[in-house]
């Protein structure tokens, strides 16, 4: 039963992830990304990471995609007529396809050879209390660094999105001065 659920959500994740770069309108791509992220959250539930599943939906599908949609609609970019990439990109894509399919294929084929070890019972591995314990003991420094990084990125975004209307003196004026 759980296998069938896994296959359904894995297929949903992969199909909607394929449609993200393929869709011509970026708004459609963002919508398909929501589907991909929500079904990824379902995969997290299958892996007993309940807190991360909630976090995934809240942060990715709730905040990041909304930010994307907002910017896409703000910029009102013209739709592309053709999706054909340049010649060098095609060559690079072909090369990367060979390497990546080799990797994924070997991963997939080695699955039947060595079956996974017996799953340990870890009922409480994904709950929020364990996250709090880990964040305030073992990962205290990375936790504080990530908080500082959020502050830095916030200041950076405010600075970047301010309209800069300071007249830059031209080269001639600088030479005169």
């Amino acid at each position: 039963m759980l296998d069938i659920i896994f296959y359904i959500f894995a297929a949903l994740t992969i199909l909607s992830a394929i449609l993200v770069p393929v869709s011509r309108n970026p708004v459609n791509g963002a919508m398909f990304m929501i589907v991909s992220f929500v079904s990824t959250a379902c995969l997290y539930v299958l892996l007993n990471a309940y807190f991360l599943a909630v976090l995934q939906i809240l942060v990715y599908a709730g905040a990041i995609i909304v930010l994307f949609l907002f910017i896409i609609m703000l910029l009102n970019v013209e739709q592309v007529k053709t999706l054909r990439p340049s010649f060098f990109s095609q060559i690079a894509g072909l090369l990367a396809l060979c390497i990546l399919s080799l990797g994924v294929g070997s991963l997939f084929l080695s699955g039947s050879a060595n079956p996974s070890p017996e799953l340990a019972v870890s009922a409480g591995s994904g709950i929020a209390r364990n996250f709090g314990y880990m964040l305030f003991t073992k990962y205290m420094l990375p936790f504080q660094v990530s908080g500082f990084m959020l502050l830095v990125s916030m200041i950076g975004v405010i600075l970047l999105s301010k309209k800069i209307n300071v007249e830059v003196p031209s080269r001639k004026e600088q030479g005169d001065a």
Binding site: L2, D3, I14, A17, V20, P21, P85, L97, V104
Partner: peptide
Amino acid sequence: MNMDLNAYLTVAGIIFSIGFFGVLLRRN
């Protein structure tokens, strides 16, 4: 629940490749 680790890793690999090709081939 008998899904092995490789099934999840394969899904992750496929999604990573999709994102990789998106970055490589799209210009937007």
